[in-house]
Design a binder for these strands. Structure first.
Lengths: 208, 208
DNA sequence: GAAAAAATAGTACATTTGTACTAATGGTAG
DNA sequence: CTACCATTAGTACAAATGTACTATTTTTTC
């Protein structure tokens, strides 16, 4: 009936998110679920296996969010903002990966490979998006291309490690964290806006 | 003659930087130094003690870099760039702290307290710097204050986690990493520059 | 309903780790 | 010289962990 594998993944996700990957073992997860660790081991050999599966779930989530954006034709700043929020929501859900990114990639090297395989596609998507917004006179047209590329790297770092910053400094939970860091990420684009773009951004600001 | 405590700190720093804090124990460090772990324990009770001491070293380094900047009167973009490089150099030296920031603060809670105690002072320093650069017509004067504050948060996240990004994506070592990420951090300010500021930035660019 | 496969519980053991402790050595102040 | 303190080496042990394995129960399949 109930999918044990799924129950294991859910329990592991919760424990990893709350306590980190270094302190949680197969035995902890088994205890949390009131099953034997022998049983858990039958489904997933060790925590690294679970981490990889959860990472792939995250991966699928990202694909969905990226797809979603592609279908929108006439993009507005508000679409863009909502899209950022969707990304941060997903990152919040699987936050243990980002809170322990270096450890995760050291313990499960495949994750690094998978993560880096997105790269080119994501960069192109971003550049396309920027170009669209430039054409719509929302983004400035006097920014050299190496700065746009820099902005993409900046976006990666900010998105991937925003919640680490939260963990150390802000200690926001759930929706509040998502809202706060979505805003931080969105605000990064402010100086790239044209007068028209700024008006659009301010409208939303005063609407809240 | 030779300070054993210092030798221990150096060995620990090297091992932490290379292999991470979760895999390195008192015994590993002792083995690396060819001393007994009983002896090492006499100097530092456990790895967390060493981590805290190393963090305080980093802290002193930051203080020095910040002081240094305060003494400069007429600030140019190039000073600013050099200052960023000095920060990233220091971060590189103690990179294990940033590569495992969340773990570090969970294992040694004092670190979180110390880190957050800088906050107000650093924010004021940044705002002062921005204002100076605005007055010198290098930074734009049409940016609202909440965006400047946002930029400070952005700077924290970018500086603290740039090397995590390197670890996962770029795999640059030493000077190359420092140079690359200093540039990334510096480029963040490009859209905040006035025409005069851009000219200054381009000069440096073409000088290289 | 019997045979086969899947799932679960539990045991066993080598290894690592944190921690406390004892013993030996070496330098040094009086 | 010797008594004292700092330093070093090494031992001991409980707890946790990764891993492999066996035995039992449950479910599925024909």
């Amino acid at each position: 009936m109930v999918d044990t594998k799924e129950k294991i993944r859910n329990a592991a996700l919760k424990l990893f998110n709350d306590q980190g990957i270094d302190v949680i073992t197969i035995r902890h997860i088994a205890k949390d679920l009131d099953i034997s660790h022998g049983n858990l081991q039958y489904h997933y050999k060790n925590t690294n296996d679970i981490i990889l599966v959860l990472f792939n779930e995250l991966n699928d989530g990202f694909s969905r969010v990226f797809m979603q954006r592609e279908t929108i034709q006439h993009i507005t700043l508000d679409h863009f903002r909502q899209w950022i929020t969707a990304l941060i929501e997903l990152i919040w859900q699987y936050r243990f990966i980002f809170l322990h990114f270096v450890e995760v990639t050291r313990r499960v090297p495949e994750i690094k490979t998978i993560y880096n395989s997105w790269d080119k596609a994501r960069e192109e998507q971003f550049l396309l998006l920027f170009n669209t917004l430039i054409k719509e006179d929302i983004f400035r047209n006097d920014i050299p291309s190496h700065i746009w590329k820099n902005l993409i790297i900046q976006q990666y770092i900010m998105a991937d490690f925003a919640l680490s910053h939260n963990e150390i400094k802000m200690h926001l939970k759930g929706k509040k964290a998502v809202q706060y860091y979505s805003q931080v990420l969105f605000n990064q684009f402010y100086p790239y806006l044209t007068a028209k773009g700024r008006r659009q951004a301010d409208e939303h600001q005063s609407a809240n």
